[in-house]
Simulated scan of single mutants.
Amino acid sequence: MTDVSHLLEDDTKHLALRYILDAWEEAVHDGVDPDNLATAAIFAALSDLVAVYGEENVARMTSGLSDRIRYGEFSMNRVTQ
Rank of each mutant, 00 (worst) to 15 (best):
E73H: 13
R60S: 11
W24D: 00
H29I: 03
A51R: 09
L7K: 05
D30M: 07
T62R: 06
E25R: 14
A27H: 01
N57W: 01
W24S: 04
R68P: 00
L46G: 01
F74G: 05
H29T: 03
E73K: 14
F43N: 14
D35P: 01
V32C: 00
F43M: 09
A44R: 09
Q81V: 10
W24Q: 02
D35W: 00
V79Q: 08
L21N: 15
L21R: 14
L65T: 15
E25L: 06
Y19T: 06
D67I: 03
E73D: 15
N57I: 08
D11L: 06
E55S: 11
L65E: 07
P34L: 05
M61C: 06
D22F: 01
N57G: 02
A40M: 13
L7D: 02
M61N: 03
D35K: 01
E25K: 14
S66L: 09
L17S: 10
F74V: 12
Q81E: 10
F43T: 14
R70I: 06
N36Y: 04
G64A: 11
D3P: 05
E73Y: 08
A16P: 00
E25S: 12
A51F: 02
A27M: 09
V4N: 05
L15P: 02
I20E: 06
S75R: 04
L46N: 04
G64V: 10
R60H: 08
A45I: 08
V79A: 11
R68G: 05
A44P: 02
F43R: 14
S47Y: 04
L17I: 13
T80C: 03
H6W: 05
A41S: 13
A23C: 09
N57K: 08
L65P: 03
H6V: 09
S63I: 03
M61S: 08
D67A: 15
D11G: 10
V50N: 08
V4I: 13
D35H: 01
H14N: 10
E25T: 08
L37Y: 00
N77P: 00
T2P: 04
D3N: 15
D3Q: 11
I20S: 03
I20D: 03
I69N: 02
H14S: 12
I69P: 04
A16F: 10
V28P: 01
K13V: 07
T12Y: 04
Y53P: 00
L21E: 14
R18L: 08
E56M: 05
S5V: 02
S63V: 04
E73I: 05
Y53F: 11
R70S: 15
A41E: 00
R78K: 13
Q81T: 09
I20V: 15
V32L: 07
H14R: 13
H6T: 13
D30I: 01
I20Q: 09
L65K: 05
A40I: 05
D22Q: 12
M76D: 13
S66T: 15
F43I: 07
R18C: 06
G31A: 09
T62N: 03
L49D: 02
F43D: 14
A41T: 15
A16D: 04
R60A: 11
E25F: 04
Y19S: 10
V52T: 13
K13D: 07
V32W: 01
A27C: 07
L46Q: 14
Y53L: 13
D11A: 15
D10Y: 07
I20M: 12
T39L: 11
I69C: 10
L8H: 11
G64D: 10
L7G: 04
